[in-house]
Design a protein around this nucleic acid. Structure first.
Length: 655
DNA sequence: CGATTTTGACCCGCGC
DNA sequence: GCGCGGGTCAAAATCG
């Protein structure tokens, strides 16, 4: 089943250059003709190569590609693009003169432009700076797309641009220019020549930037693909392990007809098959009763048996339950699978990507933050569908699901924790200066990926979930990756806080817990042995004084940024401690730049280009200063052989 | 009147 | 087998 929105759950990030487009472009599908307004002798039909009248000769190859041959000696190029004599107008002007093109040139012309017509040495106009520009145009003269904009404006077709420049310059030929007796005109011509040269230089520079940006995009795609491949491989490894380890359990549940499938695989299977068109209610007894489908359970078991045959003879009742309920937990790229909250569940054939994504979907991102508000405003629309009283907690736990799109699988839990800190351990909050018993911690847990475009305000959290899930997916597989991801997570956040991020790979769901409550005392929040806690440099200390609604966006964006930049930053991943815990000490490059760039420009690629420039520019100075070791240093060590991760932190918050 | 919230019931896994 | 807790459903109530 297609899942186009996976990873792309969010609005497509266009990859437009942040730089002004200095390259020429024609209006697509617009036919242009060269119009002579003065009935000059040039009204005669011309054939290639011909003089464009601006010091450029023009040629074309058999496929209609145009070549301009520009003499080194530049002549007058009046800036008046509306020169009364030559004008390019759209083809719909029937009064214009057709722009005749002889296309029967030698095929060698494409790479070997014909000899110049003029006396000066000619150069390949595209040889050095426009190699990547598509200068193929229609083979018909009438299809010769030509911009009517001045040459300094947008254009993507150099031929058209320069032709325009030439045509708008004058009806005088080069020879005419050279014999001009007017010295003032010559000065103007020289000035124009300089400007023209500058224009060419800018075009070359722009082309280089575009090439660089293109390369960045390519690299980014490659990194993304590589990351996905790694996740797939790791998922397969875990799957194999679970298959081996689950034999006994399989035997145990086999008697009751249960079908065991490795969790990871089952997730996918249950989540992605739309072909069975199985109602979600089929797996839940209660739902069966309410749906009035007496055969639902039988059908479900049959499907399970079928799956047993097709897949790996295992099952996960819990997953089946979850997905059978409509869930929710699966996002459909096509969107139809979520209509009515009914999700077909079984699919014996799953791509590795889907498997990895399904596993990722189970990952959770939990945010602990102090807030007086009942719920974090994260930009999404949520509908409460349940509430439970948690044992030992006077505050109920609320369950929300995203209602921004029908069938959106994203859910969140909001737990209003009452935090009691034992003053014996000296865990009074020195910043807040409040009694520990007064504090309430808002614990918001997100799960799933949105299957719909998100508003900018909601992008951060959604991307946080996605990014964190990806990190969990890899981090839960090996300690080394966990450390790497933890480091990435740390680096993702702005360097001004000692908040704790906990990565838990324990069952049932891997969870990233971002603790924004600033509780450095490990006794306050006992850690799971498989948890990795990292001081998050970037979360404001006094969160209670910060709008809680902003926090998920802050770290969400940062985490998302980090996930995108991980490949880049890892290459020069310096000691995070060098950033210190003081914003004023933060190096201006890197994190701040990235965050600022992306914050300023929703276009990720644009920000990426800006950030890369910054990173590259700041890498050297970064390397020169990365020996500094301050408080807030993060030391990670893998002290166990079973994949458990322990960490030791050395933050100035630790007491 | 549609959307949202409330709330009791239900399902299921897990531990005893 | 039973109870507990997490999670979900859906009818009823409420809201705008």
């Amino acid at each position: 089943m297609r899942r186009p929105n996976r990873g792309g759950d969010f609005p497509e990030r266009t990859r437009q250059s942040p730089l002004p487009n200095l390259l020429p472009s024609f209006t697509p599908n617009q036919q242009y003709q060269l119009q002579n307004h003065t009935n000059s002798p040039t009204q005669q039909q011309q054939q290639f190569p011909f003089d464009t009248g601006c010091g450029l000769s023009m040629d074309s190859d058999p496929i209609g590609s145009f070549f301009l041959h520009k003499p080194i000696v530049l002549n007058s190029f009046p800036e008046d693009t509306n020169h009364p004599k030559w004008k390019l107008t759209p083809h719909n002007n029937m009064d214009t003169i057709p722009f005749q093109v002889n296309l029967s040139r030698s095929p060698n012309n494409h790479h070997s432009p014909p000899p110049p017509l003029h006396n000066t040495t000619e150069m390949d106009f595209f040889s050095d700076n426009t190699n990547n520009i598509n200068h193929n145009v229609s083979s018909s003269a009438s299809n010769h797309h030509h911009s009517t904009t001045p040459p300094t404006l947008e254009f993507k077709l150099n031929t058209g641009l320069n032709l325009l420049t030439a045509n708008t310059s004058s009806d005088q030929s080069m020879v005419d220019d050279e014999i001009s007796p007017n010295s003032e005109d010559r000065r103007a011509e020289n000035k124009l020549a300089v400007l023209q040269a500058e224009l060419e230089r800018m075009k070359r520079e722009n082309q280089k930037l575009r090439d660089t940006l293109h390369q960045v995009n390519v690299n980014y795609d490659a990194l993304q693909m590589h990351f996905m491949n790694l996740m797939q491989q790791k998922g397969e490894e875990v799957e194999e392990q679970e298959v081996i380890g689950g034999k006994s359990e399989e035997k145990k549940q086999g008697e009751s007809g249960g079908v065991l499938v490795p969790r990871q695989f089952m997730d996918l299977g249950l989540a992605t098959n739309a072909d069975t068109d199985e109602p979600s209610s089929s797996s839940g007894g209660r739902s069966q009763d309410r749906s009035g489908s007496p055969n639902a359970e039988v059908a479900s078991k049959e499907l399970g048996s079928s799956m047993n045959e097709n897949v790996n003879d295992e099952g996960c009742d819990k997953e089946k339950k979850e997905y059978g309920r409509g869930v929710e937990s699966e996002d459909s790229p096509s969107g139809h699978a979520f209509a009515g909250d009914k999700v077909p569940r079984f699919s014996p054939q799953k791509s590795n990507v889907e498997q990895a994504e399904a596993t990722m979907r189970k990952a959770r991102v939990s945010v602990r933050a102090r807030s007086e508000a009942p719920m974090i405003t994260d930009g999404c629309q949520w509908r409460k569908y349940g509430q439970k009283m948690a044992k030992g907690n006077p505050c109920p736990r609320a369950y929300y699901r995203c209602t921004m799109a029908a069938g959106c699988p994203v859910r969140k839990q909001v737990k209003n924790e009452v935090v009691f800190i034992n003053p014996i351990f000296g865990t009074w909050n020195k910043q807040v200066q409040r009694c520990a018993e007064d504090r309430t911690v808002l614990n918001t847990t997100y799960e799933g990926n949105h299957n719909h475009p998100l508003p900018p305000a909601a992008m951060a959290m959604a991307q946080t979930t996605s990014s964190a899930a990806r990190m969990l997916l890899s981090g839960s597989m090996s300690s080394a990756d966990s450390i790497m991801n933890a480091n990435l997570l740390t680096r993702a956040l702005l360097p001004c806080s000692s908040s704790i991020a906990t990565i838990s790979a324990s069952a049932p769901f891997p969870t990233v817990t971002l603790d924004l409550t600033q509780s450095p005392n490990p006794l306050q929040f006992p850690r799971h042995p498989n948890q990795l806690q990292i001081p998050l440099q970037g979360i404001p200390h006094n969160f209670s004084n910060s709008p809680a609604s902003l926090m998920p966006q802050i770290f969400g964006q940062a985490l998302y940024n980090q996930s995108k930049f991980s490949g880049l930053q890892m290459s020069h991943d310096a000691d995070p401690s060098q950033f210190g815990n003081h914003p004023q000490q933060v190096p201006p490059h890197l994190t701040d730049t990235v965050s600022a760039a992306i914050a300023a420009d929703p276009n990720f690629t644009a920000a990426l280009a800006a950030a890369i420039t910054s990173i590259i520019g700041g890498a050297q100075q970064h390397n020169n200063s990365n020996n500094t070791n301050n408080n807030g240093n993060m030391t990670l060590s893998n002290s166990t052989g079973n994949g458990n991760i322990t960490s030791s932190t050395n933050t100035n918050e630790k007491q």
